[in-house]
Design a protein around this nucleic acid. Sequence first.
DNA 1: CGGGCCGTTGAGCGGGCTCAAGACATGTGG
DNA 2: CCACATGTCTTGAGCCCGCTCAACGGCCCG
Lengths: 245, 245
Amino acid sequence: MPHTASHGLQAFCNKLELNAALAPADREAVLALPYRIKKLRRHEFIVREGDIARECCVLKSGFAIRHKVAGNGLRQIFSVHMRGDAVDLHNSLLGKADHNIEMLSIGEAAFIPADAIRELTYGYPNVGQAMWRDTLVDSAIFREWTLNIGRRDARSRMSHMLCEFALRLQVAGLGNHHDYELPMTQEELGDALALTPIHVSRTLKTLEGDGLVHRTNRAVVIRDWDGLAKLGDFDPGYLHLTGPG
Amino acid sequence: MPHTASHGLQAFCNKLELNAALAPADREAVLALPYRIKKLRRHEFIVREGDIARECCVLKSGFAIRHKVAGNGLRQIFSVHMRGDAVDLHNSLLGKADHNIEMLSIGEAAFIPADAIRELTYGYPNVGQAMWRDTLVDSAIFREWTLNIGRRDARSRMSHMLCEFALRLQVAGLGNHHDYELPMTQEELGDALALTPIHVSRTLKTLEGDGLVHRTNRAVVIRDWDGLAKLGDFDPGYLHLTGPG
DNA sequence: CGGGCCGTTGAGCGGGCTCAAGACATGTGG
DNA sequence: CCACATGTCTTGAGCCCGCTCAACGGCCCG
């Protein structure tokens, strides 16, 4: 799998190839998509709920989150995205955005006109399939988060999420099972897990006390993968990392 | 919009037309898909987690749920499906199912080979777009449920779900804003809302006491739509009922 | 050196859970 | 027709996980 990130869409193309076999012509067509690169600040919104999304954004570096704010002011983060993720295929194909996408860190992204994506799927159905499948994997992750929030207690919830990030970051070439950067504050962790930041702090403390993980600055060190996966009830099947079939 | 349900895939076709403009040839191609009709019993599983899904199932009548059971034995329902819903485009295109689909009531469904779906999208990209969009709307509903479970209290959660069902059933031609059948037990409502059945009972009681809804047997009567929608923090935007753009 | 931002710690509260019992429908077979 | 089992809903009492409110400490960066 090529890892050269010189081209703005290379990481995206790599990710699509995990989803479906692409012919050389398919790959060229993806890399030939028109796009512009934009630098993004921390906390900058890429899409806001209610926007008509005319562009689709692929992350080149940095981290972003999907989220929505309920009427009572509480925020729920739905997913965390990293290099190579097409961060708003959802919003751009649905028309009107139903949630926000916000940068978690500084970064760079490629913006592709939504029409160009649509046309690409007409001419290159393999690529269309791969992108469709990519959004289906996102769906599977949403479901697992629902299960996580609805049916697991704070310690399990946290463990599960840390395991998921470990695997996804490894696949994206940004770390390994045991050690990765994660630029999230405890408040942001809380909004992802539906916990208060205070309880996030206490929960992490007990996980560290049990020798499962260690967290410094904005990094995570997993000390006992098996223990963490067991506590987190973590089965990576829902990430569909092995491709179709 | 035609409502004749004589053909097994008519309701599905109607639903796709909400998502994208279909040419007559597109419509014919959908209705020409090979399928077999099967009667389904209450609690019958259509797909089980871990299955390799080779068929895609479209509901002709009855209700079905998506769900998954956590390691601690607690079940989370992700969505409820009704006539015309392609209930496992997700699983069948991802390959290995990562969740269960189970009938909530008796019903009938059309089973279409997954390969036929895939080929259809190659020959009829408009149909492919419409199906992709359909799964994206499912995604949006998953996200809203995550928000609902993570960030709203029991009364709001219940109100929100009852509002969602009212609108979706109306679009499917199965009721109206104020009055619809919903064959779910309180235990099933609890598994959808991440509440215990006991608390579901108490919550419904207080909503009835406030004159918002009335529930009998397996039906729902909404007495005060505005009040229920306000309490449930319900904004139907995420259902994307107005089509693309 | 001051002011955000972030993380920690403590004390008390409360929404939803647990456990338990009972009410009320169904259906089923005798 | 009743006896009984099963599934569903209700009600009560007590408890606990995670929340709220509040204060403090560390850190970075101007």
